[in-house]
Simulated assay, not measured.
Amino acid sequence: MTGRIAKSPPAGRLYDELLVTLVQAGDRRAGERLAARWQPRLARTARRLLGDDEAALGVVQEAWLSILRGIGSLRDPSRFAPWAFGILRRRCADHIRKAQSARRHSGECTQEPIVAAMADEALAIREAFAALPADQRLAAQLFFVEGLTLAEIAEVQEVPVGTAKTRLFHARRKLKAALIGDDT
């Protein structure tokens, strides 16, 4: 028991469940509404993982193709969020692997330039997130930005809840250190 009081899901989650159910029944308009609601969230997460707006949008389109092809097999519409983010995570990982392979074959340098000065807090946060290992960055993005629970993060990352909790703990510690200038 986590000590949390059980509460009803927010209206947005219930609406998403309804949309998923309607999409599974063949309602194209519901699919368009679901995509309109989820496109910004998936794009934001892809940009955080890939660090490239253009690549992120392409990966999100690929993820949507997989989501719409496989939505009929989603047994529990309430699990749409972790299921969709899991698909996105796999598409981002595929993109990163392909990009690394292309750089190796072309002989490009794989290091990105480091930004010397922080212009504002948003830049500091982006840099702090970018400095996190990929697994911690995804856990932090899903928790702090997308509002997923530890169980949902574990499902997206295909790890036990304890591992997701550890990743989030370390990400939080590193973000705090980076943002307050502490070298912990």
Rank of each mutant, 00 (worst) to 15 (best):
R33N: 13
R33Q: 13
R33C: 05
L34W: 00
L34Q: 02
L34A: 02
R37H: 10
R37P: 05
W38Q: 00
W38E: 01
Q39W: 12
Q39K: 08
R41D: 14
A43V: 02
A46V: 03
A46E: 07
L49G: 12
L49E: 06
D52I: 11
E54A: 14
L57D: 14
L57W: 09
L57A: 06
G58H: 13
V59K: 02
Q61D: 12
Q61T: 15
Q61M: 10
E62S: 10
S66D: 15
S66E: 14
I67W: 00
I67S: 00
G70K: 07
I71T: 12
I71H: 07
S73K: 10
S73G: 13
L74I: 14
R75C: 08
R75V: 15
P77G: 05
P77Q: 09
S78M: 04
R79S: 07
R79H: 12
F80L: 14
F80P: 03
F80W: 09
F80T: 00
A81F: 00
A81H: 00
A81I: 00
P82E: 08
A84F: 00
F85C: 01
F85M: 02
G86H: 02
G86R: 07
L88P: 03
R89V: 04
R89T: 05
R89D: 11
R90M: 11
R90W: 04
C92P: 06
C92E: 05
A93E: 11
D94W: 07
H95Q: 15
I96Y: 03
I96A: 14
I96T: 07
K98M: 07
A99H: 04
A102P: 10
R103C: 08
R104V: 06
R104F: 12
H105T: 02
S106I: 02
G107S: 09
E108L: 08
C109D: 14
T110Q: 11
Q111T: 15
P113W: 00
I114S: 14
V115L: 12
A116N: 15
A116C: 08
A117F: 12
A117E: 14
